[in-house]
Amino acid sequence: MTSETLSLATRPLWPATKDVLLISIERMLPRPRSFWVFLLLSLPVAFGALLRIYPPPGLPLTGFELYGMVIALFFVRNLLPLVALLFGSALISDAVDSKTLTYFLTRPISRLSIFLGEFLAYLVTVLTLTVPCVVVTYLVLCAATPQGAGFGAPDLVQDLAACALTLFTYGAVFALLGVSLKRPLIPGLLFLFVWEGFVANFPGDAPNYTLTAYARSLIRHRPAEEGLAELFSKFFGVGESVLVLGFVGVVSLALAIWIFSRREYVISS
């Protein structure tokens, strides 16, 4: 056997990240959990199709308004944070649970590469599941209506960007939870439903400290608020929202990377 080993230097960041990304996508995307999530995310398509085929008498909303509700209430406010919790919190902890992290940790690649590769795989996976559902929902609800499919085309693109940013930020926050805690599910759910769910509709400056208030501000054509939210919910400028979400995402990622780089993972049989 001739030695084919390479020189003893950690592999450069991006090629190594790309290789981790390719492996991680394959381990994340074509899995039953992705299929189920896709089914849930495509519920609005079925809902829209049903409404178009059997329109209820006196439907008071246009297709575009319905789409606005779906994107704001269903995607950005509720399902995407849950998707981020499911996939984001699993980034490293899934590899720990399945005891496969050792395969990555015993390769000549930095932990930064491992984390970034996994996070990028998360983004690719969740966007692959989300983007077609949003686009098809839009088409089903808006095409061949009096307003037409072109009416909200720029909004569609903006909404996709909002979805991507929501997934990025929540994903980063939950990835941080995933690398810091052994069981990130309950803290994650507490964050989503107790903190984000209630505080975003508190009066005063309380919504400033939630992510959802910024995420929902990104949807320009969101529906009018109802209930408690109608009284207190606060909205921010698009620029401000993008900045805050981006900042929180980047800081969470940096923290997660820092923790992951320093931590020992005792994986045993």
Binding site: S7, L8, R27, T100, T102, T106, R111, S269
Partner: peptide, 26 residues
């Protein structure tokens, strides 16, 4: 090199761990 925190050594190191873990779908 120090074994912890020197990923570069894994160009020349192989580990077959005792855990029964593989990439099951591969």
């Amino acid at each position: 090199r120090p074994a912890f925190g020197s990923p570069e050594v894994f160009h020349s190191v192989g580990l077959c761990s005792d855990t029964d873990a593989l990439f099951e779908d591969f």
